[in-house]
Design a protein around this nucleic acid. Structure first.
Length: 467
RNA sequence: GCCGAGGUGACAGAGCGGCCAAUGUGACCGCCUGCAGAGCGGUUUUGUGGGGGUUCGACUCCCUCCCUCGGCACCA
């Protein structure tokens, strides 16, 4: 299996540090507001990756941090009067709901920064003792020039960066490139006790503290969006390797492309975002997930309503094909058929190719195109009255592969009685049709449509479809 | 300025040194059909940002230029 590693800029054979165990960390959210589709892209991508690793038989421990103390939260708390912990809790809960809707279910542990204060302080202490960090009046900084590996991930040369390009330079630092490990409390801010006085952690240290607590000094995969490579991930490496002397801190660094809107990054600060929860009022969660997986995880996606509409139509094609085959199955006959044979061959081919494309740096787009090919074969098989075993096999493959991508979740089953009543209504309509009473037949069809059930008359009987 | 990621048909978007510009959407034609829808079969857009090189052969490798996006030490 090959994965693209930002650290080496190459696709590398994936070999975990310890046998079959995979330790995976992905930078999580700062819960101060609703999450938007840009966040969703990253988390859906890593969800698919984790699912596939598990599908391959790896025992994956997937940890995601939650930055529940930071400037955004503090500012939002000041604006709204809601306390920081309450605010963080509220939006974290919404985040969990959004993720659940999108089928993101592979994360084992959510780790909150505020629950790792002891570990954070211990790491900062260690860095001071080893001479990599210094305390200036209650602010502790990491001295970047002391760590000679700095820049290995982002390939930045210290002297060629533009200090202050976006952020004003903090004058209390020895050098502009140094970054904060511990920030001294300002009036009214939440703070924790530390050897350097009351304060809170800097941006990068919670990730190393959390990851090392769960994984030890090294782990397999660290993920996040490309915007995090510098300075965030670069700084994490510096902290960890300076502290432990063990390298590489992380074996594989994986980065997802960002979600653009009309050529610009979707971001809270630009105001061009669409929250997941708003998107869910207009689109089914599976359509959003499909949309986010329809490009390779490293590619940027340009978001627009038109694109979502197209995703919706495409996804519907797969849903229709799946439904048609499912409903054909009880009517299918035994025995051997040529069309069945062809379907089974397609299914076997799809399974093999699915592994191949996903083994090549998790190419979900290629994987999805295989689903389309299989869907067409299923349609053909139904048209040609393929035998039951073959259709079952084709359906099984489709469901299995789609399941690895987290597409087509099983819908809550309707009650048996409701199913029978619906079947009865369909039968009544069939009788009307056979008497050429099309007025009644069409009326039943349009009334059911209003209830979200679409009837399609095929040569192989009536097919019921949701929406 | 520096670092990184991208530039592929109407749109979205993969791949591979020659077999395919996959797959989907859209459009058009045909079949099917009481109608609708879906499905199936076919067609479709002067070729993969510009230039140069390597090669028998490049979209795929190398060089160079152009354009877009992300990052450059608050914060994710």
């Amino acid at each position: 299996m090959l994965v693209y590693n930002t650290l080496t800029h190459e696709k590398e054979e994936f070999v975990p540090l310890k046998g079959n165990r995979v330790t995976m960390f992905v930078c999580g959210v700062t819960p101060y507001d609703y999450s938007h589709l840009g966040h969703a892209k990253t988390y859906v991508a890593f969800d698919a990756i984790a699912r596939y690793l598990r599908h391959k038989g790896y025992n994956v421990l997937y940890v995601q941090n939650v930055t529940d103390v930071d400037d955004h939260i503090i500012n939002r708390s000041a604006e709204t009067g809601v306390s920081e912990p309450e605010l963080a809790e509220k939006y974290f809960k919404h985040f969990r709901e959004d993720m659940e809707a999108l089928g993101v279910e592979s994360i084992n542990i959510f780790a909150k920064a505020t629950e790792f204060m002891a570990e954070i302080i211990e790491q900062i202490n260690g860095l001071i003792e080893k001479g990599y960090a210094y305390d200036v009046d209650g602010n502790v900084y990491f001295e970047v020039r002391k760590f000679k590996g700095f820049g290995k991930l982002s390939r930045q040369k210290l002297d060629e960066l533009r200090p202050g390009a976006r952020v004003e330079i903090d004058e209390s630092k020895r050098n502009p490139e140094d970054f904060a490990l511990w920030k001294k409390q300002k009036p009214g801010e939440p703070a924790w006790e530390s050897p350097w006085g009351m304060g809170r952690p800097g941006w990068h240290i919670e990730d190393t503290a959390i990851a090392m607590t769960h994984f030890g000094e090294q782990y397999d995969i660290h993920g996040g969006a490309t915007e995090l490579i510098f300075p965030h991930h670069e700084s994490e490496i510096a902290q960890a390797e300076a502290l432990t002397g063990v390298e590489p801190y992380v074996k594989y660094w994986l980065h997802t492309g960002i979600l653009n809107v009309e050529g610009e990054k979707m971001a809270k600060s630009l105001g061009n975002f669409w929250t997941i929860r708003d998107a869910l009022t207009e689109y089914r969660p599976e359509v959003l997930r499909f949309f986010l997986l329809h490009a390779h995880y490293r590619s940027p996606i340009d978001f627009s309503k038109d694109q979502l509409e197209e995703a919706k139509r495409s996804y519907q094609r797969l849903v229709d094909s799946l439904e048609t085959a499912k409903q054909f199955l009880p009517r299918a006959e035994g025995g051997e058929t040529d069309s069945g044979k062809r379907l089974v061959e397609s299914a076997e081919k799809a399974e093999k190719q699915f592994e191949e494309v996903m083994d090549d740096d998790f190419n979900t787009r290629e994987a999805i195109s295989l689903l389309f090919e299989l869907a067409r074969e299923l349609n053909v098989a139904v048209d040609k009255n393929a035998d039951k075993d073959s259709v079952e096999r084709g359906l099984g493959t489709f469901t299995k592969l789609a399941g690895v991508l987290g597409l087509f979740p099983e819908r809550a089953a309707q009650t048996e009685v409701a199913d029978k009543v619906l079947a009865l209504i369909v039968e009544i309509r069939e009788r009307a049709r056979s008497k050429k009473d099309y007025e009644t037949a069409d009326w039943i069809r349009s009334e059911l449509e209003k209830l979200g059930i679409r009837l399609e008359d095929t040569g192989k009987g009536v097919v019921k479809k949701a929406r």
